[in-house]
Amino acid sequence: MSENKEKKLGFGSQLIIENPVFGLYLGICSTLAISTNINNAIGMGIAVTIVLILSNILVSSVRNITPDDIHIPVYIVIIATLVTIVEMTMQAFTPDLYGALGEFIALIVVNCIILGRAEAYASLNPVGASAKDGLMMGISYTVSLFVMSLIRQILGTGVLSLSNPLTGAEIFAVRLIPESFVLSFMTTQTGAFLTFAVLAAACAAYKNKVTADDKGGK
């Protein structure tokens, strides 16, 4: 019965079907640009999650005192301030990560996910729920980014490596594919688009299958 079917939709499933990046196509710019290695992916994911949680909390707190027609500038100022703070903090304490992510940290301001969640959820719901929503969205984004980076890094360079963002020291680096078999185009723009297309198609296929199962199971 439909209730059982709905309970079956665990977090993993939810992640794939309502994926903000591969399903709703939000925040694509940064996903394509950052996903060359997992270091950048995790760093960017954490930055976006922090901004998302804080912006959701702040927007939710002011939702009752903000008149409707100035709500966009208000949200923008809040988000821009948060992003600037994150940017300055990263530049000071994690300079390697800051150098790798470059202008995309500043572009978090226009990341559709953040303004989108502010408009769609945080402006309508209390602070606690908004914070949780921010966390969930942030985690989905980070995981999506991580998966894409994993694929691109392994196929494109053959090496899987992780460094400590605060000191730049390498935590581990392991070669999974010999140098001569590496598909170096995966690290270029073409590889980014290709990987994204395949992952988006995979999510769509999964979604179709689940919807078909749902209909068929009745």
Binding site: T188, Q189, T190, F193, L194, A200, A204
Partner: peptide, 23 residues
Amino acid sequence: VPAAFEGNPIAFIIAAIMALAFT
């Protein structure tokens, strides 16, 4: 177009080929 690729995914494949061409 294969069902899974319909809509946006196939667009990204097009973009991949265009990116390759423009390099």
